[in-house]
């Protein structure tokens, strides 16, 4: 069976470092599938206006297209190699929960994410997506500095 690694990207430098690390891992493993994932932060329990609700489906499509174009496609472009298959995914939801869910669904052996770079006040209080993922993941997580 092919080993699978889920790489969580955030569109910043730390995500790229995670990607580079995962690529190196995959090369060492040999037969490996990389699933590159970008999560659009979204909560079903947020408050919206009626007009936003009516436009939501359209906006969601736009968000997915934009994430694919700006984050996923450039990331995938440099990854193809011998024995390595690469796929890209864009999902909506809580970042930590969604990365974990995708990893479980694909029976991945590892999750690779970048370390959260900026530490604002909110992150100190509520924790970053990365720390939430480390705390709650069902799959081994590698955090790349």
């Amino acid at each position: 069976m092919k080993a699978k690694i889920v790489v969580g990207l955030d569109g910043h430098d730390s995500g790229e470092r995670a990607l580079a690390f995962a690529k190196k891992q995959a090369e060492m493993i040999g037969e490996c599938e990389l699933i590159v994932l970008y999560v659009v932060e979204w909560s079903p329990f947020s408050f919206q206006t009626a007009e936003e609700n009516a436009q939501r489906s359209k906006r969601r499509g736009e968000e997915v297209a934009m994430a694919k174009e700006r984050v996923i496609d450039p990331a995938i472009a440099g990854l193809e190699g011998p024995g390595m298959t690469v796929s890209g995914l864009v999902k909506h939801g809580d970042v930590a929960d969604t990365i974990n869910r995708v990893a479980k669904e694909h029976k991945a052996s590892q999750i690779v994410v970048g370390r959260a770079s900026d530490g604002g006040l909110a992150r100190r209080i509520f924790g970053s997506a990365t720390s939430n993922l480390v705390m709650g993941a069902d799959v081994p997580v590698t955090v790349v500095a």
Partner: peptide, 25 residues
Amino acid sequence: SGKYSDPNDAGEVSHFQALTTALSG
């Protein structure tokens, strides 16, 4: 509370959002 919501529909308008929008009116 989202117990019957398909996770693949994440990012679309949830029951909670439709309810709270109507309530605010």
